[in-house]
Nucleic acid binder design. Sequence first.
DNA 1: AAAACATCCAACCGCCGCCGT
DNA 2: AACGGCGGCGGTTGGATGTTT
Length: 368
Amino acid sequence: MGKGKAPCCDKSKVKKGPWSPAEDKRLMNFIQKHGHENWRALPTLAGLLRCGKSCRLRWMNYLRPDVKRGNLTKEEEETIIRLHAALGNKWSQIASHLPGRTDNEIKNVWHTHLRKILECRSSESGGNESFGSSTTSLSSTSSEQASQVTIQEATDHFADIQAANEPGQGHENPKEFASSFSSYNSNIVSNFSQDDVYKPDEPMELAFNYMGPYDAVNGIQEVDKPDMSNNMMDLSLDSDFNIWDYFGNSDQSFQLNDVQFNAFQNSNSAIENGQKDAYMEGLRYLEIELGLRELASKEEEQVVVASKEDKQDVEASNEDKQLETPTMSAAEPLEPQKANRDTMTKPDSDPDMSYFEMWPSWLNNPAL
DNA sequence: AAAACATCCAACCGCCGCCGT
DNA sequence: AACGGCGGCGGTTGGATGTTT
């Protein structure tokens, strides 16, 4: 056996070959919204049946907005020839001198076109032109490392989220938020085991897997990231990242009504102002919908019914329907979560405690 | 018209180096 | 120091398309 590494993904479960327009669209939409901090996780989060490498390649060589199309100009060809003479087959380095051109494209052009030109020139000039694999050693610039998220970036990022949470500044469509929020929670809840259930004496793991050094409880500092690999989602820290948009990619079938949403969205001020009831109402509603709580009263039932009557249907394109359901999507029915309810236990100390209070550091964090 | 051949290029594969643990 | 994960790179492949016979 060779000592090659394990494959980056399960080859039997990923699609290969040419990309369809629907896949392109999905990949572009995802990256435009959330960036590409983690290629390995991206296909799952974006709902693509592709390996991360394949996604990266497609983006880098084809979908990136700054990729130049069309034939190379004479000047570009000459540049490639000169750089190849100096650098050899360092296609990425050559590409770095040609804005908008990819290493793959340059490599292809070289093999199909430029090499022949050089061969012709060589034969004409008596063999002085070089077109082989040059081994000229230039000090190669170290590859750019994935930029660490700075404290300032993290601060700005969460300031943005907080701003989105201000009254009147939040998600433009509360129902969309509630719908997508529920899908996210459905996913988390469906993956809960007994060990995941809240234990009052244990520190809570955050529900989100930050990619930057941000501790939602204590402020800005490095924290250990919980290992919940398949159950977690990575939050991009792109400057234009908006957590509400992150959730806004779902077809889940229930929504909070506006009152519930507002209470939920403004949970901190609601609690500080002694309006916890409104906040808790939103939580209970979510729990009921997720099958984590039985309807406690006629009133609650009416709230649920009213909300369902108020919901909007989300149209999914036929193309999207053909794609594999993303991990974070809500296409799965709620039944599995209802079954899960039986495996969960509430803290003994407070039988009325909301399951969503299992995230106190998240939900009540002033930074949010 | 059709078969054979040539060309193009998107995508895959395996390896490498960096980095975190 | 050793190991594993990941992004990046360069070589290669193979299907699509164009050209020639």
